[in-house]
Write a protein that binds this DNA or RNA. Structure first.
Lengths: 252, 252
DNA sequence: GTTGACTCTAACCATACGTCATAGATTACG
DNA sequence: CGTAATCTATGACGTATGGTTAGAGTCAAC
């Protein structure tokens, strides 16, 4: 049980923010002392992490509340939708940068910029319309099945997790031991097949396409790479190669 | 003289916004009727355009007020500073997109993401610190010379502008007439030299580097291209090439 | 028992307007 | 000229996310 200050320094949010989240019902502490002190559990902290994640993604607190409170919510679709918004924002910022560049060159080069041209790149209303559209769509999807994806893992016990982790580690070890024989090594291919079965069994149906994309992610995103290379240096790259061969020979 | 509704539809802002800008002293109408109706002049509209420009650039209304009211303000530096903020924002969004991608793949591939990793890419506080730093710097620069750049052209009369435009058109015509002879044509080189002199005389000291950058902008930014090609199709490209040769032979 | 660190609630502040509500002004039309 | 429709004005409340006091109670240490 943590008091506000502790949570505050641990997670990096202000005490006021915790008060605020409590008031709007976004994050209520598990219990309070007789004196009214808020006491947060680890469970509360987890929710706070989730809140911060979606906040980083630029969801509003209201939206986050709806997302987290509605157990039937499809996180995946929401994230995909949200990604489109982000891409649009990025494009808008790129346009802003371009316009600033243009303005700077204009100042330097003495070109008189007509006001109309100055605004050429922008169409805020269009952008806002899009954002609204996406927001509405996202809200409509709020009623859909949340745990199609997440519920599956949500109900795993500590015991389950231990087993899953052990199995995974076994596969990692097998793969690591075959690194010297190259990605086409038969036993490596067997192991990588096991890996796909593992994912499908415990997490999500892992199609060939998904599996291939996953492999690419292993080396493209350092957070994956670092995690995997904990077992053996270079394993991430090896897994990617092996997965590539595997997918190639399994795709029709 | 335009009434609120007219301005509103002309420029595309709400009446309420005009009221607001009036109240905070950002944009006060030239006069009012005895009945209190706001009457805006063309001059007011120009200021409104400027306001919208800076707003698009994500300046706050307060900042815009300071920028526009302080005649000793260096727009160029402010824009440069601001550009850095934009670039940072862009990078942040890119990270957000990456994290969303990561999360999606994680969901699909069944990788359990540790919370700490989930936040790997982010350091909001750092970003905010930077933004604040830039904002402060920008504010400090607010006292500096505004019209080092802009005042020069600000005092030009209609007559001046007519002459400048005529001279510019002459140079454009000369260049257009030499397009068939290629960028190294002597007369083209002469004309492009005149163009640089023209810019330096009427607008801003145009160094070789600036001139070269300007030339690139002519083809890289369609707003420039379109403007220039009004005189003759392909002129922008030709000017860029000619400027390139010119700068090459004049550098050092 | 006193001090210092921590906690609580309440309330005001800021952004950039949207959204009424109420009332006066202007314009169009018959 | 009378009336309706349209436009305008001010005023005030609401929104979102907390920051920032302010006054007061709580807790642990010395």
């Amino acid at each position: 049980m943590y008091k506000v200050k502790e949570v505050s320094t641990m997670v990096g949010v202000s005490v006021r923010t915790l008060h605020h989240y409590d008031r709007i019902g976004l994050l209520e502490p598990e219990t309070t002392t007789p004196a009214g002190y808020r006491l947060y559990t680890d469970h509360n902290l987890e929710r706070l992490q989730q809140i911060l994640f979606f906040k980083e993604m630029d969801f509003s607190l209201q939206e986050i509340k709806e997302i987290l409170d509605q157990p039937d919510f499809d996180r995946k679709k929401t994230l995909q939708t949200h990604k489109e918004v982000l891409v649009k924002k990025k494009k808008r910022i790129e346009k802003m940068i371009k316009t600033v560049d243009y303005t700077l060159v204009s100042i330097e080069g003495g070109i008189k910029m007509e006001n109309k041209e100055m605004f050429n790149g922008f169409d805020m209303k269009e952008i806002e319309k899009h954002q609204q559209k996406y927001a509405e769509e996202a809200k409509q999807k709020f009623g859909e099945a949340y745990n199609k994806t997440v519920e599956k893992t949500k109900n795993y016990t500590e015991e389950d997790w231990k087993n899953i982790t052990e199995e995974a580690n076994g596969i990692y070890a097998k793969l690591a031991s075959r690194m010297e024989f190259g990605a086409e090594d038969e036993q490596a291919q067997e192991a990588i097949h096991e890996w796909r079965q593992h994912i499908t069994k415990y997490f999500y149906e892992c199609t060939i396409d998904t599996f291939k994309g996953l492999g690419e992610m292993y080396v493209a995103d350092e957070r994956f790479t670092k995690n995997i290379d904990k077992h053996k240096k270079g394993l991430a790259q090896f897994m990617k190669d092996t997965m590539y061969i595997y997918c190639d020979s399994h795709s029709k």
